[in-house]
């Protein structure tokens, strides 16, 4: 599962341009499912037919990134971004377009900055991607407006039992969801790898229509603001403290029956777990729980430090525990209790 996560983390897949991720996942899941299909938005569905409830588990394929909005006369690329902090992207290496043209996001050297400039936050509009082009004409040979821009961070082990990489939100979910497809469950099971979560939970709106789930679960990478030392309500989650169980976020409230079913599963199987002790942020369960006639939803997450930046950090044990919890929930037929 970790090997697969490495591959997934390094694939480029900014919201709206998930094709590389989709292709890889499709190859992985095709042998394990009754049918694998996509919809007009690009969501990938892996269906294991069965009797009983229609259960849908979602992980989103897309990651935060940027898009080229124009090319300046001097060959620099103007871009726009969603879900990114401009302070986090300066001086980062990027890949642009379908040919992965290397670029860097430059800024003025510290020697040349005035006192005032040093205290000013640069906004997206003040930043450009430099691909080494001589001028606009030269740049247009390699890239064009509308091309996606992605960070190039490599995945690697980190400290003791941790790993780092880009797009852990939500490739951790994708890796776990692929692993979950190896098992069989007493329900009509659809794993959905969704698109465009980061720009407004868009793919999931089509997924709920196509699958019509009675119970749905999201596997997510979530906030972990524990550095510097923060009280729990400010850190939201902590690394190495287990699978994260949500009770409420910006998109949905987890019904008591679902919350109890997930919690009891963790306790029964001795799986370390923690609450998601914050309510900001949202995920695919927002549109899913109120799609069509509505359904019962829950969210299980892996804590990821520094999400929505070019690099985040997570723990192998948390990653493993989220997988164990989701699997136990499904294997034990807990979806029948909610």
């Amino acid at each position: 599962m970790l090997e697969r996560l490495k591959v997934l983390s390094e694939l480029y897949g900014v919201s709206g341009d998930e094709r590389r991720v989709r292709k890889y996942i499709r190859e992985q899941v095709e042998p394990m499912c009754d049918e694998v299909y996509t919809d007009n938005m690009g969501n990938l569905y892996a269906h294991k037919k069965g009797n009983g409830k229609r259960v849908m588990v979602c992980a989103h394929m897309d990651e935060v990134g940027m898009i080229v909005t124009g090319i300046l006369d001097n060959g620099l690329l103007a871009f726009s971004a969603a879900g990114l902090d401009s302070r986090a992207i300066i001086s980062k290496r990027v890949a642009v377009g379908k040919d992965d043209v290397p670029g860097v996001i430059g800024s003025k050297a510290i020697h040349l900055q005035s006192e005032a400039e040093r205290k000013t936050v640069l906004l997206m509009k003040d930043l450009n991607v430099d691909i080494g082009a001589k001028d606009k004409e030269d740049a247009l040979k390699y890239v064009k407006p509308g091309d996606y821009i992605s960070f190039t961070t490599k995945f690697s082990d980190f400290g003791e039992g941790l790993f780092k990489g880009k797009a852990l939100d939500d490739r951790v979910g994708c890796a776990i969801l692929i692993e979950l497809l190896k098992d069989t469950y007493e329900c009509d099971f659809t794993a959905v790898f969704t698109v465009m979560e980061e720009i407004g939970l868009r793919g999931a709106q089509a997924a709920v229509y196509n699958v019509k789930p009675e119970v749905a679960l999201a596997i997510e990478g979530t906030l972990c603001n524990e550095l510097p030392e923060n009280p729990r309500r400010k850190s939201v989650t902590k690394l190495n403290e287990g699978a994260v169980i949500s009770f409420m976020d910006g998109g949905s409230l987890v019904p008591e029956s679902m919350l109890n079913a997930i919690k009891d599963t963790a306790i029964q199987h001795n799986i370390p777990w923690q609450f998601r002790q914050g309510t900001s942020g949202s995920n695919d369960m927002g549109p899913v729980h109120i799609g069509l006639a509505g359904c019962k939803t829950g969210v299980i997450s892996v804590p990821c430090r520094y999400i929505h930046s070019p690099v985040s950090v997570a723990s192998k044990s948390d990653f493993e525990n989220v997988y164990r919890l989701a699997k136990a929930f499904l294997r034990d037929g807990r979806f029948n209790e909610v």
Binding site: P231, R232, R233, F247, M248, L253, Q277, G278, T279
Partner: peptide, 16 residues
């Protein structure tokens, strides 16, 4: 909604 309980038994909250 209760987000956290501190050592002295105070409950920290978020709005619903």
């Amino acid at each position: 909604i209760v987000l956290d309980i501190d050592d002295k038994g105070f409950l920290y909250v978020a709005p619903v």
